Amino acid sequence: MSGRKRTVSDEEILEILLDSEDPFLTTTEVAEVLDFSQPGALKRLRQLEEEEYVETKKAGNSNTWWITEEGREMVSSKS
């Protein structure tokens, strides 16, 4: 199947982080769940970081991401 992938909302990305059994996820892990390229996932995660919905920290060669309190509030307000 080719063509443009479906649009993924910010809330869906935040829910991935919120629902994870791990306290944080790598960019690659988020990309795999979304079926995105790694650069595509990184772009979206950086946008969410600018809006203070996620935070990041470099661990080795990977960025790790976790949801902030603001991100949790955004998800719960949309539910």
Rank of each mutant, 00 (worst) to 15 (best):
K43G: 08
L17M: 10
V30Y: 01
T56M: 05
L42C: 03
Y53C: 01
L42M: 09
I67M: 01
S77H: 03
V8Y: 05
L14D: 06
E70R: 07
K58R: 11
G60R: 04
N63G: 02
K58P: 04
S76M: 05
N61R: 11
L25F: 13
N61W: 06
P39F: 14
E51V: 07
M1V: 15
E29C: 08
S9R: 12
T56C: 04
D10C: 08
E11Y: 13
L45H: 04
S9F: 11
K58W: 05
F24P: 11
S62V: 04
I13M: 12
L18C: 04
E29P: 08
A41F: 03
I67D: 02
E32A: 11
E12L: 11
T64K: 04
S37H: 13
K5S: 15
S79T: 12
T26N: 09
L48P: 04
L18Q: 03
E21Y: 13
T27R: 00
K57P: 00
L34V: 10
D10A: 13
L25K: 13
E11C: 15
V30W: 04
T7Q: 14
K43P: 04
L45A: 00
E55D: 06
L14H: 06
R44K: 14
I67K: 03
D35W: 15
L18T: 02
E52P: 02
E11H: 14
E29N: 10
D10V: 08
S20H: 10
T26M: 08
S79P: 06
V54K: 00
R72T: 04
F36W: 15
E50M: 07
T68Q: 02
S76Q: 08
E12N: 12
S37V: 10
G71R: 02
W65C: 02
E70C: 00
D19Y: 12
E70Q: 05
R4V: 15
G60Q: 07
T64C: 03
Q47C: 09
Y53A: 01
G60A: 07
P23I: 13
R72M: 05
S2W: 13
E21W: 12
N61T: 14
